[in-house]
C-alpha cells in the first residue's frame, strides 16, 4: 500500500497491548495478548464466533477493564490513566457499534452534533454545518432531521459512522461493520473504511469474520482462538494466509475448503 507523506506518524506504533488478560469473574476468556498496531493500519480482530473479538474491542475502548496487562496509545497508558486523562484520550476515539447505537431520541444531525456540542466551542450553526458535512461523507445528505427509527439498518450504520467521525478521531473502531448488511452495502462500507484511512490518516480497528472484508481492507491482524484462550497469529492477513502454519488459522482463512472435511466443533 502506498505510503502517503502527509501523515508523518504513519507506520510508527500507535496501539499496543501488553500481556492483556480478559476475564469475567474467575472465567478467563483470553490471556497474554500482545500486539502492536501501527499508525495508519487497518487492524483486524478475527476469530471464530464467541471467542471474544468484541470483548477485546470493548477492552480497547475502556468499556471493560482488563483483569491483567495494559493497553497503550502512543506510549500513553490507557488502562492506568486517571479519569480526566482517560476522558481526553477517549475524545480521540470514534466507535461504530454493531447496531449503530444512534441515540434514538435525537435526529441524525443532533446525533452527529452532540460530541461537537460537548467538546468544541463551535456555534450552533457551525455544528449543524459540520454535522451535515459528516452525513454527506457517508452518503446521507438530506437526512439531517430524520430520527434513527425512520431510516434503514444500513443507513443507521452509516449515520453511526458519521457520528464516530464527528471529532476527527485518530482511531476508529468498528464492531462487525458488515453484520446485517447486504454484500454490496458491505463492500461500499469497506471502500469507505479504506478511504477514511487514506484521507484522515486514522488508524482503524475492525472486528469481523468476513473473509472478503479481511482481505480487502486489512493489513494487520490478530487471530483469537477460543480453544487455547489466547492469540495464535498476528500480522498481515495476506501473509498469514501464505505462511501461517497454524492449522486453525489456515482453516479459518480458507473457509476450511482445502484440506480434509471440516469437523464441527462445539458451541
Amino acid at each position: 500500500m502506498a505510503e502517503s507523506p502527509s501523515h508523518p506518524k504513519r507506520g510508527t506504533p500507535h496501539i499496543e497491548a501488553r500481556n492483556l488478560t480478559m476475564a469475567f469473574g474467575s472465567f478467563v476468556l483470553m490471556r497474554d495478548l500482545n500486539f502492536v498496531v501501527r499508525h495508519g493500519d487497518i487492524f483486524i480482530i478475527m476469530g471464530g464466533s464467541g471467542c471474544g473479538k468484541s470483548t477485546l474491542l470493548r477492552h480497547m475502548i475502556g468499556l471493560l477493564e482488563p483483569a491483567a496487562g495494559e493497553i497503550l496509545y502512543d506510549g500513553e497508558n490507557f488502562t492506568k490513566a486517571r479519569p480526566e486523562q482517560r476522558e481526553m484520550m477517549l475524545r480521540r476515539f470514534g466507535v461504530l457499534y454493531q447496531s449503530g447505537a444512534l441515540w434514538s431520541s435525537m435526529t441524525l444531525a443532533e446525533n452527529v452534533g452532540l460530541p461537537l456540542e460537548e467538546f468544541t466551542d463551535l456555534s450552533r450553526e457551525d455544528i449543524r454545518e459540520v454535522a451535515s458535512l459528516k452525513l454527506a461523507l457517508v452518503g446521507l445528505k438530506g437526512f439531517e432531521d430524520f430520527y434513527p427509527s425512520q431510516i434503514s439498518g444500513g443507513m443507521q450504520k452509516r449515520a453511526g459512522l458519521a457520528r464516530a467521525m464527528a471529532l476527527d478521531p485518530e482511531v476508529l473502531f468498528f464492531d462487525e461493520p458488515s453484520a446485517g448488511l447486504d454484500p454490496i452495502s458491505s463492500r461500499l462500507l469497506d471502500d469507505l473504511i479504506l478511504e477514511l484511512r487514506d484521507s484522515l490518516g486514522a488508524t482503524i480497528v475492525v472486528v469481523t469474520h468476513e473473509l472478503a472484508s479481511i482481505f480487502t481492507i486489512g493489513n494487520n491482524s490478530v487471530f483469537l482462538d477460543a480453544q487455547s484462550r489466547t492469540m495464535i497469529a498476528h500480522g498481515d492477513p495476506h501473509e498469514l494466509l501464505a505462511h501461517c502454519d497454524n492449522p486453525v488459522v489456515h482453516r479459518f482463512l480458507t473457509r476450511g475448503e482445502d484440506g480434509e472435511k471440516v469437523s464441527r466443533p462445539h458451541g
Binding site: 468499556l63 477517549l90 476515539f93 454493531q98 447496531s99 441515540w103 434514538s104 460537548e118
Partner: peptide, 17 residues
C-alpha cells in the same frame, strides 16, 4: 435499559460523556 441493549449508553461513555 433499552439504551443499554442498543449500546447507546456505551456510545456515550466512549465519547467521553
Amino acid at each position: 435499559g433499552t439504551m443499554k441493549v442498543t449500546q447507546e449508553i456505551d456510545a456515550l461513555a466512549t465519547m467521553g460523556i
